[in-house]
Design a protein around this nucleic acid. Structure first.
Lengths: 135, 135
DNA sequence: CTATCTGCAAACGTTTTGCATAACA
DNA sequence: TGTTATGCAAAACGTTTGCAGATAG
C-alpha cells in the first residue's frame, strides 16, 4: 500500500515507518521509536513520534494494540493476528485463529453491532519462564 | 465469597463493593466510583478508591478490564464474560463464547504458555447508533 | 495495641496540546 | 505559497506513592 491521501510523507514519518517495518517482530511503543531513531541520528521530538504513529495508523500503514497501559505499533503489512504476552519476561508471540475471529464477528452481529475492531491479548507465562518456578 | 484474608474490610471498602454490586450492568472506572460515593455522602479520596479496587480485586470480589486507556471494574459474582463496546455511545454489552475461551487456551498451550489471563474487547457500532448513519 | 488503612497532595508515566518556526507539495 | 508538520515545553490524563493521622481487629 503506497497511496498517501490525507497526510504528508515527511522525512520523520518515513523514518518512523522504515524503522517499524525493518523489525517486524517488535511491538514498538512511542518512546522506543523515539529512542531508536535518535540512536541512528534522526532528530525527532516525542510529540512528532506520537503524531506520526497516529497518522501512519490512520493511513493504514501501521496497526496498534495496547497492553500494560502502553500503546504499541507494528507494520500493517503483516497478516492480522493477536498477541500472547509473557507476564514475566515480556516476550510477545503472535497467533491467529480464524475460528476466534469468526466467533467474534458472530457475537457482535447477534447483538446488533457492526464490528469495527477488537483487542485480544492473552497473558501467560512462557515456556522459558516456567522452568524453575516453585511448585 | 465472604471470606476475607489479606485485607481489612473498612467502611470505605464496603461502600465501594456495595456500590459496584448494586449496579451489575455498569463497568466502573475509579473516578466514577469516587464520584458516585461522594454523591451519596461517603467521604472518600481517589487514592483510597484505587487501593480499594485493587484490594477487592486481589481478594476475588471484583474483576477488571481495560479499554480506552481506563481500567473498569465490575462484580466478580457474575459469570465470566467478555465485552462489546459501542464506539459511538459507549454502550457495553457482555457476551461469553466457550468456544473462544477454549481456542484461547489452546493457542497459549500450543506455544508453551501457561495462560494466566486475557483481555478481549470487541469494538463496534450498536444498533441504535447505526440508524441514521450516512451511506 | 499495632498493623493496616485513610486522605491529601505531590509525583508518576504516557499521551496530547499550544505555539512559533520549518518544510512538503 | 499556502497548508501541514515539526520541536519544544507545558499540560492533561489516569494512576501511584509518601506521609502523618485514624481505625479495624
Amino acid at each position: 500500500m503506497n497511496i498517501i491521501l490525507g497526510m504528508r510523507m515527511t522525512a520523520q514519518r518515513r523514518a518512523v515507518l522504515a524503522l517499524i517495518e525493518a523489525e517486524p517482530k517488535r511491538h514498538w511503543s512511542a518512546e522506543e521509536v523515539a529512542e531508536a531513531l535518535r540512536a541512528e541520528g534522526v532528530r525527532i521530538g516525542v510529540a512528532t513520534v506520537y503524531r506520526a504513529l497516529a497518522a501512519l495508523e490512520a493511513e493504514g500503514h501501521l496497526v496498534s494494540v495496547q497492553w500494560h497501559g502502553k500503546r504499541r505499533y507494528e507494520s500493517a503489512q503483516k497478516a492480522h493476528h493477536d498477541h500472547l504476552v509473557c507476564e514475566r519476561c515480556g516476550r510477545v508471540e503472535e497467533f491467529c485463529d480464524p475460528a476466534i475471529e469468526e466467533k467474534q464477528e458472530k457475537a457482535a452481529r447477534a447483538r446488533g453491532f457492526r464490528l469495527t475492531g477488537h483487542q485480544l491479548v492473552l497473558f501467560g507465562i512462557c515456556a522459558a519462564c516456567q522452568e524453575g518456578e516453585g511448585a
